[in-house]
Computed example of a mutant assay.
Amino acid sequence: MLILLLDDLQRIIGDDETMKILSILQNALVELNLQGKNIMFVATGSEDIFYKIQDKLDSAVRIFEPYLIGPLSYDELCEAINVPNKKQNVSFEEDVLKEIYYLSNGIPYYMQILAYSCFEEINADNKVTMTEFKKASVHSLNILAQREFKVLFSKSTTEERKILCLMAESDKTVLSYSYIKDNANLNSEPSALLKNLINKNMIIKPSRGKYKLKNNLFKLYLQNLRINQDTGLINE
C-alpha cells in the first residue's frame, strides 16, 4: 500500500497553479491503481476540503472513498489525554482539560501540542493544574507560531490585518458582515478582503454574512501580536 501524508490541503486549491498538483497526482495514482496498488491519503485541511476538491476536479477524487475525521468531542479529548497519562502516572485537572478543549477546538493536532507541552511543567505531585498549564501554553503557542501561524499571518495585507485585529479583540466569536464593515476602519468594502482571508485559511464563514477566526489558538496568537486597529501594523 502507498500512503501519502499531506498537510493543509486547502492551500492546493487556492489557485490554478497549485491545482496542477492535483492533476499530476491524478495521473500517477490512476496508473498505480491500474497496477493493483492500494493508495491511502492521510491529510489535514478544512472540514469540507474533500468536497471542495471534488467541485474543482471531480475525477481527481473519484477513485477515493473518504473517511473524514472531524474535531474531537470533549469526552473523546479527555480519553485521548487521560489514557496515556495513567501509564505515566500523571493527572490533568478538569479545568486544564476544559481549557485544552476550548483552545484546540477539538482539533487533534492542536490538542497534542497543548497536552504534550504540559509534560514539561508537571508539578511535584505529577499533576498539571492551571498554573502549570499557563506556563505550558506559552511554549505551545511558540511552537504553533513557528510551524504555522507566522507564515499564515505573513500572507495577509494591512487591510486584512485590520479585520483580523477586530476579530481577535472582539468578545464575540462570530462577527457579521455589517459589523466588520462599520468597525474595522477599512478603506474599502470588506467583501474581497473576507474572501481572501477565507481562501488563506485564516477565517471561516459558518453561515451567510457571518465570519470567525479559524480557531481559538490563532485568536490568541493574534492577540499577542498587538495589531494596531487603525493602521493594520503591529505595535512595537
Score class of each variant (00 low, 15 high):
residue 153 F to P: 03
residue 228 N to E: 05
residue 167 M to K: 06
residue 122 I to F: 09
residue 43 A to H: 08
residue 149 F to E: 00
residue 139 H to E: 11
residue 186 L to S: 02
residue 143 I to Y: 07
residue 96 V to M: 04
residue 89 N to F: 10
residue 1 M to D: 14
residue 12 I to M: 10
residue 19 M to A: 11
residue 23 S to M: 07
residue 76 E to F: 08
residue 60 A to P: 07
residue 68 L to A: 06
residue 119 F to K: 10
residue 199 N to S: 11
residue 231 T to I: 03
residue 148 E to K: 13
residue 180 I to E: 02
residue 153 F to N: 01
residue 71 P to H: 03
residue 2 L to Y: 12
residue 62 R to H: 13
residue 3 I to G: 03
residue 25 L to I: 04
residue 23 S to K: 15
residue 231 T to R: 06
residue 12 I to E: 02
residue 69 I to A: 05
residue 138 V to K: 11
residue 35 Q to M: 14
residue 69 I to L: 13
residue 104 S to N: 15
residue 179 Y to G: 04
residue 4 L to P: 00
residue 31 E to T: 11
residue 115 A to G: 07
residue 64 F to H: 04
residue 131 T to Y: 15
residue 17 E to R: 14
residue 223 Q to P: 00
residue 7 D to A: 03
residue 104 S to T: 10
residue 224 N to I: 01
residue 151 V to I: 04
residue 220 L to S: 06
residue 201 N to L: 04
residue 152 L to W: 02
residue 141 L to E: 04
residue 69 I to S: 02
residue 130 M to E: 12
residue 66 P to K: 06
residue 188 S to W: 00
residue 224 N to Q: 12
residue 28 A to R: 15
residue 233 L to R: 12
residue 189 E to Q: 13
residue 227 I to L: 02
residue 94 E to N: 12
residue 199 N to Q: 10
residue 198 I to D: 03
residue 228 N to K: 01
residue 45 G to Q: 07
residue 158 T to Y: 14
residue 217 L to Y: 05
residue 204 I to L: 00
residue 195 K to V: 09
residue 174 V to K: 09
residue 50 F to Y: 15
residue 72 L to K: 01
residue 165 C to S: 08
residue 109 Y to C: 00
residue 160 E to Y: 10
residue 235 N to L: 12
residue 144 L to A: 01
residue 97 L to Y: 09
